[in-house]
Design a protein around this nucleic acid. Structure first.
Length: 542
RNA sequence: AGGACCGUAGCCAAGUGGUUAAGGCAAUGGACUUUGACUCCAUCAUCGAAGGUUCGAAUCCUUCCGGCCCUGCCA
């Protein structure tokens, strides 16, 4: 399902003949890594265009030199590719600087723009405030010839940064501050990554963006809610410059994930202060972070699509993201058994040194994934959480003294006795198994209390689990130090065991174990398996 | 405070004057089971509030309440 209200507009525009084709664009400023919030814009733009067999352009919004970096552009391209989207073409805002300039000259010629000498502070003063009207600049009524000459000189580099701006003549009394003679050109004397030192003046977003859209024949220019108040200016620019096409700006709400930081500034700070390793740290909400965390592009796409879109900034719980990952993984991933906090189990009536191998499906719901051998012997590990001496209630579905439980893919075992350390902590459970109950044998004379996972101590491999319960949290007051906002508990390292045949190939990708997701940071150098568990386990038993 | 946008369940979100207000997530109860997973079944809102218009309103109007955004030569 895709955003209804925008889709409806597009349909109408197609039906009425206003447009023959839908063209959208994703216009990031290449000054940061893309995060899950951007995914909404990307998916929406691409999917919407796809609905109508249209096109989507990737346009790097580079009207402000020295703000963008090449690494970010590369990262953005990679993220897009990872999500599975291929732009119709890749452009730059700076591709249109020449035209922007001519359009501006025309505005001057029509008496709609003027060069202003007001300083930044003066301009601010003249602008007025939210409830007091602004007043007109004393330079507002310069002659067209003078304005033309001055503008030319600005371009030539005759003036310093901040000395002059080109403003558009609208209405200093407007209740919309964006309409109080906004500046459309400012002087910046820095080389531009694409145009070099050709320009000393650069257009501002509010002027450049509608023109870029028009030049690319964008039909629907989607952006977030904070641009609503810029729309009158967007339309003003289109109306008064009369470019080649008439794009329409449509706003939608931003997507936030409950309790996570999605602000460029903070993400940058997290990296710079080394609170995380880099933008692709699995705790980061960046697309590269999520990727490393084990998320699939499909899951993110589905998440965005099913989560919908409206004119509300939505705050969506993290578990919704998890849900879509689960949906995507559950059929296509091999599931392995693992224990995070091992508890020794000894099968007292099983022969010493004997090892049995059972065939176990890699994914109970998908036979195509085949099966593997799992081993069983006298000494096993189970999850500490899966045992308790006295079961708390009838709903308890794990192992407890005197009760029987199925070891997944193997036998029923019955817990008879515990061994405790000097602190009274259970360190081992002595069990007996019932040979008749082998999984797949058709045994159904008794029902076990539940089914739990295990690994065979004689063949299991040690593994390091990094547990990430959360993305970076942001439940703090604005003046709080960043390091205090950081959820330190979001990273835990646990040593446990995984099945022997666990295959740490890149293809293995995410693993679904114990209802969590595991991504894939493998340390193959010392035969150690490192698994990032990316989602908190379902809260155990009640 | 001037202006803009918005308010449908715990979280998203369809619906834009006419049957018992879609759907997803979460939750709860149950069935099944080689994971308390998965699957399946069931339960779960009178639409921010109050008035008004109308034969009829979540849908139109008014007022109020609440949220969010706007005073860059950022995007």
């Amino acid at each position: 399902m895709i955003s209804n209200f925008i889709k409806t507009i597009m349909e109408e525009d197609l039906n009425s003949g206003k447009h023959k084709e839908i063209i959208t664009r994703f216009p990031p400023e290449p000054n940061a890594y893309l995060h899950i919030g951007h995914a909404r814009a990307i998916v929406t733009n691409f999917e919407l265009a796809k609905c109508f067999n249209g096109k989507t352009i990737l346009r790097f919004d580079d009207t402000n030199p020295a703000k963008e970096e090449k690494r970010f552009m590369d990262a953005i391209k990679n993220d897009l590719a990872w999500l599975g989207y291929t732009p119709y073409k890749v452009t730059f805002g700076s591709d249109y600087f020449d035209d922007d300039y001519v359009f501006a000259q025309n505005l001057i010629k029509e008496g709609k723009a003027y060069v202003d000498d007001l300083s930044k502070d003066e301009m601010k003063e003249y602008r007025g405030t939210l409830d007091t009207p602004g007043k007109e600049s004393p330079y507002r009524n310069r002659s067209i010839e003078e304005n033309l000459r001055l503008f030319e000189e600005m371009k030539e580099g005759k003036y310093d940064e901040g000395e002059k701006t080109l403003r558009v003549k609208i209405d200093m009394k407007s209740s919309n501050l964006n309409m109080r003679d906004p500046a459309i050109y400012r002087i910046i004397k820095k080389p531009h990554p694409h145009t070099g030192d050709k320009w000393n003046i650069y257009p501002l977003y509010d002027y450049a963006h509608p023109l870029q859209d028009a030049e690319e024949y964008i039909t629907h220019s989607l952006c977030s809610l904070e641009y609503v108040e810029h729309r009158p200016l967007y339309d003003w620019v289109i109306e008064n410059t009369k470019p080649m096409s008439i794009p329409r700006q449509i706003e939608f709400g931003r997507l936030n994930i409950e309790g996570t930081i999605l602000s460029k500034r903070y993400l940058k700070e997290l990296v710079e202060t080394k609170l995380v390793t880099d933008y692709d740290d699995p705790r980061m909400p960046t697309l590269v972070g999520l990727k490393r965390r084990g998320f699939t592009p499909e899951s993110i796409k589905e998440f965005v699509l099913s989560t919908g879109l409206s004119r509300i900034n939505s705050e969506i719980p993290l578990n919704v993201l998890d849900h879509f990952l689960m949906e995507d993984l559950k059929l296509k991933n091999v599931r392995r058994m693992a224990v995070l906090n091992p508890l020794k189990v000894t099968i007292t009536n099983y022969d010493d040194g004997k090892i049995e191998y059972f065939d176990f499906p890699n994914n109970l719901e998908n036979e195509e994934l085949g099966s593997r051998k799992i081993s069983f012997s006298k000494h096993l590990y189970i999850e500490k959480e899966d045992f308790t001496e006295i079961k708390p209630n009838n709903k308890y579905k794990r192992l407890s003294l005197g009760a029987e439980v199925r070891l997944m893919g193997a036998y029923f075992i019955k817990a008879n006795e515990v061994i405790k350390d000097e602190n009274g902590e259970v360190i081992e459970v002595l069990c007996t198994y019932d040979k008749e109950t082998l999984s797949g044998s058709g045994f159904n004379a008794r029902k076990p209390q539940g089914t739990i996972q295990y690994v065979d101590a004689s063949t299991a491999k040690p593994a390091e689990f990094r547990l990430f319960d959360n993305l970076i949290r942001s439940d703090a007051t604005p003046d709080m130090e960043l390091k205090d906002k950081f959820n330190k508990d979001s990273l835990l390292v646990v040593n446990g065991y995984v099945e022997q045949e666990y295959d740490p190939t890149p293809e293995a990708k995410s693993q679904l174990i114990r209802n969590g997701y595991y991504s894939n940071d493998y340390d193959s150098t010392n035969d150690k398996i490192i698994i990032n568990r990316t989602v908190s386990l379902k809260q155990s038993f009640k």
